[in-house]
Structures are given as C-alpha cells and as structure tokens.
Design a binder for these strands. Structure first.
Length: 313
DNA sequence: CTGGTCTCCTGATCGC
DNA sequence: TGCGATCAGGAGACCA
C-alpha cells in the first residue's frame, strides 16, 4: 500500500530509467483510470468509458512524443514532467504499480509465447520509451506500465507545471519536512482524533495508515487524542516522529506488506521495523503491554494503551 | 468549515 | 475442494 516512502522509492527507482527518455508509443487499455481537469462538473472525475482493446492512441496529454525531464513527488503523488511542460500525475492508490523494464524484443518464439500467456492482468496503460543511455548490453527501448488491480489509483493529466503547483498547493507539507509550527497551525481547529488528522493529506502529505500509527507510537500519543488538544511539546514530538518514521522507511525502500514493490520489482524492508502496525495483541516493543486495536477514522488502528498518552476527554 | 460515513475495486484469507 | 463472508485502505463524494 504505497504511502509517501513507497512512492518516493518508486520515484528513485524510476528516475534513472525515465529521465531523458522519450515516449515513442503508448497503449491505453482502460480509459477510466484517467482523470482530466476538463471534466465537468466539479473539476475532476473519471472518464467512464468502456474498456478498450489495446491500441495506439494519439494522446499528448499522456506524454506521447515527449521527453521526460524530471520525476517529482509530493506526499503520495508522483509527477512525470515532460519537456513540453505537460505533467502526468500518478496516484498509486492501494495496489497501483509503475513498472519499468526492457521492451521485449519481438520474435517468433516470444510472439507465440505471448499469444499463449495472457498479458500481466490489470495493466491499464503501457508506454514505450527510447532511452539515450543505451550502451552495449543495455536496452535502448523501455516499457513503462501502470498496473493497478483495484483501480484506486489513477492518472491526472495536467497541461502545465502551474497546474501541478496549484494542485499540490492544496496538500499539506510533505511528511519528510513537516514542522511543529505547521502542525500547530493546521491542527488548532481540529477536534477530530489525531489519527484521523494525520490521514488528511491537507494537513501532512504522504502519511497513510501504517506510518500514522508508527508515528503516534514513537511520539507516545494516543490515536484518539483530539488533534487540537496536543501541547506544543507533543506537537514537536509528533513532527519529529513523523519525519523520523518517514525517513527511516525511505531508507528501507518502503514497507512491503502484501505486494508492494518498487518499479523494478524489488520489495522494501521497512515492515521489519514496524512497532505497532498489524501487531494487535502482541507485546508493545517499549513496555511489553499487549497492543490494542480499534477502528478510528475507518482505519484499523493499533497502539499501546500503556505508553501512548490517553486523550484528555 | 468540520467530521463522520459511504463508495469504489479485487485478491487474499478464513471458517465451514 | 469449494464458497461465501470478511478484510485490506486512499481519497473523493456526500450529508448532517
């Protein structure tokens, strides 16, 4: 389940392959994974279209015939920036993947094999790219695939860099850089449980269910504590905990719980250091009390009832 | 504006 | 072995 650290790991594993590469072809299998700003009313909506058979489509908004100049991330969102100025914004959602590899060379053997074996299921779009970095032994033609079984993810096509800036301005600071002051400002009027607030991307971008629980554990805060009730010292502890947890997870190349991998298929190892996530009933790593579990903000939440401060209600 | 609930979607897992 | 129920959750829609 990609949260900020997983998306950052994807970004880092994609960048050496994509930056400088030019998209030479694309194949769109499901149009309804694409969201365009032009869709009325209310701005963004899915294109409800019958799934199409794979076919080449002239889509400049999907960066066809453009060169990728940068990959940028804010929170859980990954932006492919093209030399044209266009931006393709990717949400991985729950089960989304961006996978890059060498484009299989067509051959009779490969064709027959491909005809027998179905393509990777849930591949909604594929881009072919030519890379300028080809050396002997290195393929010069790549393919990038967006694969998302549950389709909670999607693609946003943005005409300009300014549209990206505008869109990202509605998100809070990236979790890698969250400060006590920023938390204080955005939580001051929030009576919701701090757990719910941490999942709100407008408050801090990139924290999902796993890292919210881990951050609250590190900061010794009860997930039900009203957000606005936190003291300055607690806010400082929380901001520090978020940065610590997120940076450690990035260093570990993300958490592989079920099927998350980076763009080259490599799993992360951050799950090995989780203190509370998915550990309900097991002893607290700090005090050995059994960890408690409940649903907060529609999410399974795990905490230590002994060493995470009770909410003062 | 805020917060809570619902919804989307498929695969893994579990109890019977 | 099969099958229905349950769970996983990011984030927008919707309502009080």
């Amino acid at each position: 389940m990609p949260e900020g650290p997983e998306v950052e790991t994807v970004r880092r594993s994609l960048a050496p392959w994509l930056v400088g590469s030019r998209i030479t072809a694309l194949s769109l299998r499901r149009r309804d994974i694409i969201v365009t700003p032009a869709d009325p009313p209310g701005g963004f909506s899915r294109q409800r279209t019958i799934p199409t058979r794979p076919r080449p489509v002239p889509r400049p908004d999907l960066l066809l015939d453009q060169t990728i100049t940068a990959l940028e991330r804010h929170g859980k969102q990954l932006a492919l920036i093209a030399d044209s100025g266009r931006v393709l914004l990717v949400h991985l959602g729950m089960t989304g993947k961006l996978v890059v590899d060498a484009l299989p060379v067509p051959s009779q053997v490969a064709s027959r094999r491909a005809a027998r074996a179905p393509a990777t299921p849930h591949t909604h779009i594929q881009w072919n790219l030519s890379t300028p970095y080809a050396t002997p032994g290195t393929p010069s033609t790549l393919r990038l695939r967006f694969i998302d079984p549950r389709r909670f993810g999607g693609l946003w096509t943005l005409p300009t860099r300014d549209d990206l800036t505008l869109r990202w301005s509605s998100l809070g600071p990236d979790a890698t850089q969250i400060t006590p002051a920023a938390l204080a400002a955005s939580l001051a009027s929030r009576s919701a449980p701090i757990k719910a607030a941490l999942l709100d991307q407008a408050i801090v971008a990139g924290v999902g269910n796993i890292y919210a629980d881990e951050s609250l554990f590190l900061a010794r805060l009860h997930p039900r504590a009203p957000a606005a009730s936190l003291s300055p010292a607690q806010l400082a502890a929380l901001a520090h905990a978020i940065r610590t947890v997120i940076h450690a997870a990035i260093d570990a190349r993300g958490s592989t719980i079920r099927d998350y991998t980076d763009s080259r298929g490599q799993p992360g190892t951050a799950q090995l250091t989780h203190n509370v996530y998915a550990r309900a009933g097991l002893p607290c790593p700090r005090c050995a009390s059994p960890l408690a579990s409940a649903t907060i903000a529609q999410r399974t939440t795990v905490w230590c009832p002994n060493c995470q401060t009770q909410p003062c209600v």
